[in-house]
Amino acid sequence: MSSEIRKIIAEHAHLSVDVDSLADDANLYQAGMTSHASVNLMLALEDAFDIEFPDSMLTRSVFESVAAIEAALTQLQAAAA
């Protein structure tokens, strides 16, 4: 899942560095992701994983790193299963 997330980040987050140079827990906002870009990332994740983030998950911290995004997706997929 992590590699798929990284691919979507590379396309949508507009980082100032290569996402593959970042650790799973590196902060994406500190790597240059703006709030605007983060919304595009969320939309792309919803599309790619066929899920919907509920309002309670639509906060900055849920999308702040590859690991945080993976945890959120895992939680949503477990709830759906």
């Binding site: 605007h36 919304v39 969320m42 939309l43 983030f53 309002d55 639509l58």
Partner: peptide
């Protein structure tokens, strides 16, 4: 402009 972006993803 900020709100317009948030409205794309916010649900309820």
């Amino acid at each position: 402009k900020t709100d317009a972006t948030l409205l794309l993803i916010a649900k309820d």
